[in-house]
Design a binder for these strands. Structure first.
Lengths: 148, 148
DNA sequence: ATAGAGCTTCCAGTGACTGGAAGGTCAAGC
DNA sequence: GCTTGACCTTCCAGTCACTGGAAGCTCTAT
């Protein structure tokens, strides 16, 4: 199976597959004589695993750990559960931060007439308002919501 | 006021102030003879505006628009409101995506015994499970939750 | 006079990609 | 057998919003 076929079979784009190989998430597959990557069904299976993990918001680093947990037949299910719940906590923290922002802005917008006049409580709040909306999230990938 | 004082007065770090200047969000302030940046109280006011906007999750590009709306005394409040509500929709979309991920993972974790045995429904789901958890969010800054 | 805090510029790295250039390979149709 | 075009290869650059750090200059206090 070449990379294009592996991509459509797994739902991970060819570009991303190469990227995951480059950063060491997956091993280099064997090559055809022409130098094309050649994927086994096990490798495609792993790519599908990766796509599902990614869809649940796991980072590449976390996926490395997940793959290790997957292949370690002797690890306890509590190891996996702990790992998952740590991630859930992080997701929920970010979620709450986004919700707080949305709510603050929504409340502000509700008090704005939204007509042709310039007077606007949203701008006024930004200009001289109270302090922030949210407990902020933290994540390496997004410094914006980063730091402790 | 030098950059350190402007930073503590506004809550935007000196590093970020320089960055915002570099990317054109704010104008270059005047300089002292020694070459130090010198901020007026209007400029510090603008930095506070920026910090509040950032705390509501606006991107640098969006903040450029917000600053324009702020300084345009003739724009209608409906312009601001529309801008804000578009952002609210985006925040809520991302929020729902995170919530869907968290819920999926939480449910999965609930069915996991979390004991010393290796059998684990979380890993099994990733390995051969159903499709994704979420309507995905989109944002330039975070390709991970990006694309249409 | 000197120490050290704070300022300056500039460069590099972060995470998870995406886009594109330049060039090699493969399968199908003529 | 040749051409076409879809697909593969590598490599480099850009995205976003920062952060860290080096090298060197300035200011303030002792």
């Amino acid at each position: 199976m070449n990379i294009g076929q592996a991509a459509s079979a797994s739902g991970v784009s060819a570009k991303m597959i190469r990227y995951y190989e480059q950063v060491g998430l997956i091993a280099s597959p064997s090559r055809t004589e022409a130098g094309y990557r050649d994927y086994s069904s096990d490798e495609v299976h792993m790519l599908r695993f990766i796509r599902r993990a990614r869809d649940l918001g796991f980072s590449v680093e976390q996926m490395t750990s997940l793959l290790a947990l997957w292949s370690d037949r002797s690890r306890a299910s509590s190891d996996v559960k702990r790992f998952a719940m740590t991630h859930v906590a992080e997701l929920e923290r970010k979620m709450r931060a986004l919700r707080a922002m949305a709510e603050t802005l929504r409340h502000l917008a509700k008090t704005c007439h939204g007509d042709e006049r310039p007077n606007c409580p949203i701008i006024e709040e930004l200009s001289s308002g109270h302090e922030a909306a949210a407990p902020k999230p933290r994540r390496a990938a997004s410094r914006r919501y980063g730091a402790h």
